[in-house]
Design a binder for these strands. Structure first.
Lengths: 197, 197
DNA sequence: ACAAAAGTCGACGTACTGTAGATTCTGAGC
DNA sequence: GCTCAGAATCTACAGTACGTCGACTTTTGT
């Protein structure tokens, strides 16, 4: 099997630079106030050139979110450990989520904020939470919650609790003095109560 | 005390017509695709005239959300009944939320979607959930959850669970075939487990 | 070396937004 | 019934950011 070709295109770097710039700008600017010109200029090209890389402004954000979410997924996967006790698995998962928000808070927040405006982002975000919910459904099952697809079965509870987890961290991340540790404690507390109900 | 003057200004009706039009249009158009021209025309005036009533497009949505939230608050207040058993009070509250989403789903959804883009809407929505959380904190207290301001005390749990409730109904409302009843069942199930943990 | 592909630019047309000034409607007081 | 302030409306304008286009320059593979 041939060695993977080194695709060190100049454009690949430029594309990353554009995303980096967008990420940096998002820390002080909202997406709708964010201008294509600013992103392009920050990456050292003209506005027109940006459209060589992305179809439009939304696609830039979508790519940025996708890049971030890939990192998030990797983290989420490490949390599913069949051998661990359900309670420990849950706790590890939630702590993983906390870490992800610490590392990628700005983009995650943007992803949530603009989900409503952008189907692609909404889909990516949804899939991520969904994947997390599937993992947690198994954890709940192992903790004794009955399976099935009724509104009070493991899958439905895991879904609701995953979205609660998302919301709790999102809100914490939005606050001027984010207290992610507290968010973790509250979240774990609720999951724990549900699992030992 | 003098009788309140009848302020039946022509403009008051027009203003309501503008909000009604905006609400109607929101059912088939996203806010950013919603054009000022469409709102104005729907209410029978020109684009320029709309600016006599509202400073800009965002203010229209803000006013619409505020109008809706007034109705929501009224509903929420009826749910707080000091005499009822905690479990019954909680159930009644959640069913109230379901009803509100049934009646005002479109605007509520818009409120959530555009909270990120509009501080005024975010504030109004926040206050509403916050008010609900305060009520539910009392319910949890009466159910035996300890008070205080730690991350696992009644207030923190009520907050997280209220946002979970919001998310659950929001997601249900977003789905093509909304199943609010299922959302209610799941939500009540979780609240119940927490209260009898 | 040289053609093809990748990358870049600046100018253009478009679609909105928000503003300003002129104009018409309305109704309270004389 | 006249008058006039201010409520309500319109049209035209200026501004801004978007996305497209065709021409030009650089990079890459052979």
């Amino acid at each position: 099997m041939a060695r993977r070709k080194e695709t060190l295109r100049k454009g690949d770097l430029r594309e990353q630079a554009l995303l980096d710039t967008a990420e940096a700008l998002l820390q002080h600017t909202s997406f709708e106030d964010l201008t294509v010109e600013a992103i392009a200029k920050g990456a050292g090209i003209s506005r027109g050139s940006l459209y060589f890389y992305f179809g439009n402004k939304h696609e830039v954000l979508a790519a940025l979110v996708e890049r971030t979410i890939r990192a998030v997924r990797a983290t989420a996967d490490t949390a599913q450990d069949e051998a661990a006790a359900p309670d420990a698995a849950m706790e590890r998962a939630v702590r993983g989520v906390e870490q992800v928000w610490r590392d990628h808070g700005t983009v995650m927040r943007a992803a949530v904020d603009y989900s409503a405006l952008h189907p692609v982002i909404a889909g990516a975000w949804n899939d991520t939470v969904e994947a997390f919910a599937r993992t947690m459904t198994q954890v709940l099952r192992r903790a004794g919650v009955p399976g099935g697809d009724g509104p009070e079965d493991a899958a439905a509870l895991a879904h609701a609790l995953c979205w609660m987890t998302e919301r709790t961290f999102y809100r914490a991340a939005c606050s001027p003095e984010p207290d992610l540790a507290r968010a973790t404690a509250t979240t774990i507390g609720i999951w724990h109560r549900i699992m030992t109900g």
